[in-house]
């Protein structure tokens, strides 16, 4: 495992820690999209089914379990915690799941490495992860009040993807057999979705202000 990959994973993990910290300390999930959290949970469940049939390393297994547990934990807080659930922006978070889930499922059935249940589900998770941030970005645009932690959460989630691209470039040169075109294409799309957000985030940061969206 190279440093880019490790830094990417840590950035991903850190983004999740931030969101849990925000919810736990402020007992609020204001500004967070439950739709995005549900989509990420679906991504983890469909991708990490391989926990049952393949083993790569202890590191991978532990990280997979952490991602699964934390995504269910976040959802539990947003849905069932007495105080937290009252802070959820239900009226603003109106993005429909099927708008993303259905096209990803269809695409996974058409473009995949192998037409088997596990492989199609895995491919679906790759496509869905690429676009799962959209409800969160829409919510951000709508509410405009972005607190620091939500901004940082999205920043680290974007950083995770950018670092993975560096990891792929590194692996392209160092591992001739490693060619995951499908993953790379989805990863590029996913990182692209953050471009706009990054621009405003860095601008606000430079100006030493809170993140403001136009």
């Amino acid at each position: 495992m190279n440093l880019f990959r490790l830094a990417g994973d840590m950035s991903h993990l850190f983004s999740i820690v931030l969101i849990l910290l925000k919810i736990y300390t402020s007992k609020s999930c204001a500004g967070l999209s439950m739709k995005t959290q549900e989509l990420y949970t679906l991504v983890f469940v469909t991708r990490y089914l391989d926990l049952f049939y393949s083993y790569v390393s202890l590191y991978n297994t532990v990280m997979k379990l952490i991602f699964l547990a934390s995504s269910f934990g976040i959802l539990w807080y947003m849905r069932y915690h007495k105080q937290v659930k009252q802070t959820y922006d239900r009226e603003q978070d109106t993005f429909r799941h099927y708008i993303l889930v259905v096209p990803c499922a269809v695409l996974a059935l058409i473009v995949n490495n192998e037409l088997s249940v596990t492989e199609v589900l895995w491919t679906f998770s790759i496509y869905l992860e690429a676009v799962a941030i959209l409800p969160q970005l829409v919510l951000l645009q709508r509410t405009k009040n972005v607190d620091n932690l939500t901004g940082q959460y999205i920043f680290f989630l974007g950083a995770y993807r950018a670092l993975y691209i560096l990891n792929w470039i590194y692996r392209y040169w160092t591992e001739p057999k490693y060619r995951q075109y499908l993953v790379w294409a989805a990863g590029l799309v996913q990182t692209g979705l953050y471009a706009d957000f990054f621009y405003y985030y860095l601008k606000s940061w430079q100006a030493g202000e809170k993140l403001r969206l136009p």
Binding site: D9, S57, E114, Y164, N167, R179, V183
Partner: peptide, 10 residues
């Protein structure tokens, strides 16, 4: 063979 690619990333 693409399907035999090891899925070693998260």
């Amino acid at each position: 063979e693409p399907s035999k690619l090891e899925k070693d990333e998260l």
